[in-house]
Design a protein around this nucleic acid. Structure first.
Lengths: 227, 227
DNA sequence: CTCCAAAATGCCTCTCAATGGCACTTTACC
DNA sequence: GGTAAAGTGCCATTGAGAGGCATTTTGGAG
């Protein structure tokens, strides 16, 4: 992919975008998303608020940019892949492949983003809403790839993919913070695998029998019980 | 449930709340959610903006009130039920039972709400985010009811319930608008049944074989293919 | 290199949702 | 009837978000 070299204009724009994003993450982490105004962010990045809005659609968009990059990369990978065999397995593999392919620099920003989401209701809501828009996009790619019929199962698969993601991300953020770098990514991938693996068993989960003294009567299946 | 009779204070508050909600739906439907300011809504309902915020946490909350009622009723039903057998079936039955139990007056408001959501990005986002908070609440109820262990399958079941809901609601809004009253509710219930029914088949969906000329090679399963 | 047009930026004004303090009004209860 | 608590309205403020337009920067042709 050797296009024309980026112009000075393009380089400057990219630098401004990165500067806004990094500055935002730093300030939001220091003082909290809600406590940092866009005037302050612009001052710190030496960019006007007007310009900020030329780069990001909203305040929350700059905080969630690393997550957006992941979904964009994932959607791109889905659009490019060959489809054969189990669709869910393809959705799963593409997601874990995408996560693995994101770089260390992205990982640092993504961890910061997850931390902000965990402590900021407005960011959680924005991230959740964006996730559901991602589901729409996944369903669109699948409709196109699988033959253009509007199939309820396709829609559900998009839902299941993000369901697994949300469960995995939730556990990941909760988990041990000590691993760094690649081990962090591996942890996320493991949680994703656990979540996708647990889908069939979840469908079959039954309530404990009323007279059982413990969990012995719980559904036997792929054991995803918390260890 | 015969508690003490509501006081004049309580009755007036309830009337104000209903008035705000109904007035908001009317104005939002006439002119669009974004075009109606809270000053205008307050003027029309003869309530100050300050008071509006004593009843609703945000502008979108008044627009989504009917949906909130549904989820509150559903969560209440889940908290009250006996748990035995398949958890997913229980989640499903409780949801369809709840929908059926909501009254005609609620149905009218709920239809208006769905219409607003369909045409207002901000409301769609707010509704989606609220849906995911509902998933959290479902998972909490399930954790309590099933023995208090944090089980990934439980979390996934909450996800699957809202997944089916979103798919069903989407098809429902798209569908024939001519049925009224109970037939509208039956339509929603039917879409919910279809969506829950399609979950196992979705897990097993495979891509069409590359040399197949048509969908003949698609996964044979519970056929939820669009008709 | 110069010039001009296009693109990017900053300044400014405005709107409106949201927040919150406090004075005033209404209701409940003794 | 009097008083305290609850409810309401008025007012001021903040900050995200929108958009117009002047100014600055960059690209490209001659």
């Amino acid at each position: 992919m050797t296009g024309p070299a980026p112009s000075l204009r393009d380089r400057k724009k990219q630098r401004t975008r990165v500067l806004l994003h990094e500055t935002a993450l730093r300030l939001f982490l220091q003082r909290g998303f809600d406590a940092v105004t866009l005037d302050e962010l612009g001052e710190a990045a030496e960019v006007s608020r007007r310009t900020f809005f030329r780069y990001f659609a909203a305040k929350d968009a700059v905080a969630l940019a690393a997550e957006t990059e992941l979904w964009d990369a994932y959607l791109h990978r889905l659009a490019d892949r060959e489809w054969r065999g189990s669709v869910l397995a393809a959705l799963r593999d593409s997601l874990t492949d995408t996560v693995r392919a994101m770089g260390d620099e992205w990982l640092r920003r993504f961890l910061a983003t997850r931390g902000l989401i965990a402590r900021t209701p407005a960011l959680r809501a924005a991230s959740d809403a964006a996730g559901i828009r991602t589901q729409d996009r996944i369903a669109d790619v699948l409709d196109t790839a699988l033959g253009g019929e509007r199939d309820l199962r396709v829609r559900l698969l998009a839902e299941l993919t993000l369901a697994a993601w949300r469960c995995a991300a939730r556990e990941w953020v909760r988990g041990d913070k000590r691993p760094a770098g690649r081990a962090k990514v591996d942890g996320l991938v493991r949680h994703l695998d656990d979540a996708f693996d647990a889908l069939p068993a979840a469908l079959g989960l039954t309530a404990p029998a009323r007279d059982a003294a413990g969990p012995a009567a719980a559904s036997a299946g792929a054991a995803s019980r918390r260890r």
